[in-house]
Design a binder for these strands. Structure first.
Length: 280
DNA sequence: AGGGGAACCCGTACGC
DNA sequence: TGCGTACGGGTTCCCC
């Protein structure tokens, strides 16, 4: 389940591996993952182009490709959702990591970049400048961007009467936070996930933003959380699962107070794990 | 405008 | 054992 740290890891790996590479050929064995255009338009925009930048926005990996014709810099926006992933194949990728391929870009140097997705709920979208600008404008600020102040953060939180966990994961307010890191940051900040967002003080909001930044930064350093499907651009697992305090630990002792952690679906229909003793 | 619900997809878990 | 079915999960779209 790639969230911010996992997509950040993939984007950094890809940028290090394929920057400047030329796209020689594009195959789309599973066209239903494509959004915003047909296979022919997708190919025409990308074949012959060069990869100029790979970065992350929210939970998306953005591959920027110089246009072959005109001056558009096309963006291939990949949303892995649950089981999707981008992987570079230099010929040594194990067969087990070469299944469920939906889209492949063959590079001029002989390597491939695959978009793999067993369940195909993830998407690959081709966007021009205007389309990407409007897409990005609909998503909130990046939590790790220092331009996001504690005041702006507490501003949108204290405006909503929904549970704080739901507001944290609302991409219109804040980019890139999903179920795992919402659970983890709320535990670190000792906040009950079901608490009405508007009831948090400005000081508690500042604590929450600090906790969120800590957990995201630590997870990026560990190359993400491989709970089940996630793999980085080399097909390897991230190790942050070893540092998770609550997610996947329902019924086990709280690492702060030793009482049993509770798992519930009552907050937002998703698995929520928290400590009823120290989160309030 | 904010909020709720359906659709998307298929491996996994579970029931018979 | 084998088959059928329910479920989950983030985002987008539609509707109230």
């Amino acid at each position: 389940m790639p969230e911010l740290p996992e997509t950040e890891t993939i984007a950094r790996d890809l940028e290090a591996m394929v920057l400047g590479a030329l796209i020689a050929r594009v195959e789309v064995p599973r066209p239903d993952v494509l959004r915003g255009g047909a296979v022919a338009a997708f190919r025409e925009a990308l074949v012959g182009g060069a990869l100029r930048r790979v970065w992350r926005r929210a939970k998306c990996i953005v591959l920027e490709v110089d246009a072959v014709r005109g001056d558009t810099r096309w963006r291939v926006v990949v949303q892995p959702r649950f089981t999707g992933g981008l992987v570079v194949d230099d010929g040594t990728l194990p067969a087990a990591e070469r299944t469920a391929i939906c889209v492949t870009a063959h590079l001029a140097d002989g390597r491939c970049v695959h978009y793999r997705d067993v369940r195909r709920l993830g998407t690959v979208a081709l966007m021009d400048d205007a389309r990407f600008a409007s897409y990005s404008a609909g998503i909130g600020p990046e939590p790790l961007d220092s331009a996001l102040t504690a005041e702006a953060f507490s501003g949108f939180i204290r405006y909503s009467r929904r549970p704080i966990k739901v507001v944290l994961m609302d991409q219109r307010h804040l980019a890139g936070v999903g179920n795992i890191y919402a659970n983890e940051s709320l535990w670190r900040a000792s906040i009950d996930p079901s608490r009405e967002a508007a009831s948090l003080t400005a000081g508690t909001c500042a604590d929450l933003l600090a906790a969120l930044r800590e957990v995201l930064t630590a997870s990026i350093a560990a190359r993400g959380t491989s709970f089940r499907d996630y793999r980085d651009a080399r097909g390897a697992r991230g190790t942050f699962v070893e540092q998770l305090a609550v997610y996947g630990r329902a019924g086990l002792p709280c690492l702060r107070c030793g009482r049993r952690l509770v798992g519930t679906h009552a907050v937002d229909g998703r698995q929520t794990v928290f400590c009823p003793t120290c989160q309030h």
